[in-house]
Simulated scan of single mutants.
Amino acid sequence: MRAVIQRVAYAKCKVDENVSGAIEKGLLILLGIETDDTMEELQWLAKKIIQLRIFGDENDLMNKSLLDIDGNILLISQFTLFAATKKGNRPSFIRAAKPTIAIPLYERMIQELENGLGKKIATGVFGGDMKIELLNDGPVTIIMNTKDKDNF
């Protein structure tokens, strides 16, 4: 699993001009799911996201987590995070999980994040043509890959 995590002042997702999810202060998470991703990796990533201390404290140091600030999450499924660009100029997405694997894991990630956060999260529409609007706060952007946990 690969996640691009952005600290945002706000973020919203539109599909066909309808807002599917919107948040104020919190995290916009772009989530890519790979064919061989496991439930263990999913749980590790969800816990790590909830506990990331990337929000400012009273001294403006990154010392607070989503839980500390009562922050929100907008979760967007994004298979393009597994684009292979080594050969040619047209990306290949062979490593990205097919919907039969990805949808159940995406839905489970929603549950894990909601359980860890103690409230509902906002989402995009799996497979939808989404338009994402956000105000990156900082900017703070972190990339995590569950296959490379030792470096995160």
Results as ranks from 00 to 15, higher is better:
L61H: 11
E17Y: 02
K149S: 06
T141S: 13
I110P: 03
I103N: 00
L134I: 14
K64T: 06
L75S: 07
T85H: 01
F93E: 01
D150C: 03
L61P: 01
E34C: 03
Q43K: 12
Q51T: 08
K131S: 14
F93C: 05
N136S: 09
A3P: 00
D37R: 05
L42K: 10
I33C: 03
K12Q: 08
I110C: 13
A96I: 07
E58L: 09
I143S: 15
I76Y: 00
C13H: 02
D57T: 11
V140E: 15
N63Q: 12
V125P: 04
K64M: 06
G21S: 10
P91K: 00
N18R: 13
I23T: 03
K12G: 08
R90S: 10
N59Y: 07
I103D: 09
Q6A: 00
I103G: 10
N145I: 06
N136E: 09
P91W: 04
Q111V: 15
G128N: 06
P139N: 09
I142W: 05
I5C: 13
V125L: 14
C13N: 10
L31M: 04
G118T: 07
E114D: 07
V4C: 03
I142C: 05
R95N: 10
I23K: 00
L42Q: 11
S20K: 10
N89T: 11
Q111Y: 11
L45W: 06
I121E: 06
W44C: 05
A96C: 08
K14C: 09
N63I: 02
D16L: 04
F82T: 00
I101S: 12
I49F: 14
I94L: 14
I94A: 09
K120D: 14
Q51F: 00
M1A: 12
K14M: 09
N59R: 14
I5D: 12
A97K: 02
D137S: 10
R108G: 01
S20D: 08
L61T: 14
Q43L: 15
S65F: 04
N145L: 07
R2E: 11
I101C: 11
Q78G: 07
Q6S: 05
A102E: 08
L45A: 10
L28H: 04
